[in-house]
């Protein structure tokens, strides 16, 4: 678009409006970060101050030293790593639904969509009993398994895979490539953008996972960050700053991941045929 002076003024106005909106949106996050550096006494002060008057790192030290947050962090990363396996399974499913005609496709895909409509609270106890029967309670695999695949993500994969030209696949078949080989050497490289999106979504979900780690783990050694944080969230420890520090510890890494990968994320959605 040609940038006339009027257009440029409008762009600046939009930029200012967006910046104000961004500040308001991110304010609770900013508040959390700043409060995490306040001593306990200051956090309870009224009227509140935005900036910590006597900034301290004591709460972060407490988290790591006293509350085993180092271990929770490792567990969280392990859960995220396992859930990345789900990406591959969902990509395969998306490809299958997008590029093959087969008996039962319609109702299977309907099932995929239907699972999006089931509230988690509903399925918690049956799911737990299933995992228990599979002897997977108290394992990291058991924590990751119930959320390994999701209808929403399979749907996104399918949308993306539909945009891959059939000719490419046919050409590879004529060259004698096997189906699995086509998937691995042609489809997966083409699907990098959607993998990027899904990786970030998976990371967010795994990072914040609370319910399953809590229920499946019979051993504190398997707790994740979210569960660790909720251990603090109780009446016996009225220390808002400590809680804020724990919360910040959870959000900041996600923020960094997003800032690094955001270009790929937007691109991935763009190419996923969601237009």
């Amino acid at each position: 678009m040609n940038a006339s002076p009027a257009q440029r003024t409008l762009t600046i106005m939009v930029a200012v409006a967006l910046a104000i909106g961004a500040l308001i949106t991110a304010f609770p996050f900013l508040w959390m970060l700043l409060a995490s550096f306040k001593p306990q006494r200051e956090a309870l002060d009224f009227p509140p101050t935005l900036l910590p008057l006597a900034p301290t790192l004591e709460h972060y030290v407490t988290l790591f030293v006293q509350l085993d947050f180092g271990r929770y962090l490792v567990n969280t990363l392990l859960v995220v790593a396992i859930s990345f396996l789900g990406l591959l399974i969902m990509a395969m499913a998306g490809y299958g639904f997008a590029k093959f005609e087969f008996r039962g496709r319609r109702w299977m895909f309907f099932l995929v969509l239907a699972t999006m409509m089931i509230p988690v609270q509903v399925t918690m106890i049956p799911t737990f009993l299933i995992l228990n029967a599979m002897k997977l309670t108290n394992t990291l695999a058991g924590i990751a398994l119930p959320t390994l695949v999701s209808g929403f993500n399979i749907f996104l994969f399918r949308q993306f895979m539909s945009t891959i030209p059939d000719e490419m696949i046919e050409a590879a078949r004529l060259d004698g490539a096997g189906e699995m080989r086509i998937f691995v050497s042609i489809i997966v490289p083409l699907a990098v953008p959607i993998f990027a999106v899904q990786a970030v979504l998976t990371f967010i979900a795994g990072w914040n996972s609370f319910l399953w780690p809590l229920i499946i783990a019979n051993d504190q050694k398997l707790y994740t960050l979210s569960v660790g944080l909720s251990l603090l969230n109780q009446q016996l420890a009225v220390n808002p700053s400590l809680q804020m520090a724990a919360a910040a510890l959870m959000v900041v890494p996600m923020f960094v991941v997003f800032v690094i990968f955001q270009r790929h994320i937007v691109q991935g959605f763009t190419l996923s045929g969601l237009k």
Binding site: P28, F29, W31, M32, I204, W207, N208, F210, S226, L229, S230, N233, P240, Q243, M244, A247, A248, M250, V251, M254, F255, F258
Partner: peptide
């Protein structure tokens, strides 16, 4: 990207 526990606190 903010977990629900953090949201409740803030």
């Amino acid at each position: 990207i903010t977990g629900i526990v953090a949201i409740s606190l803030v």
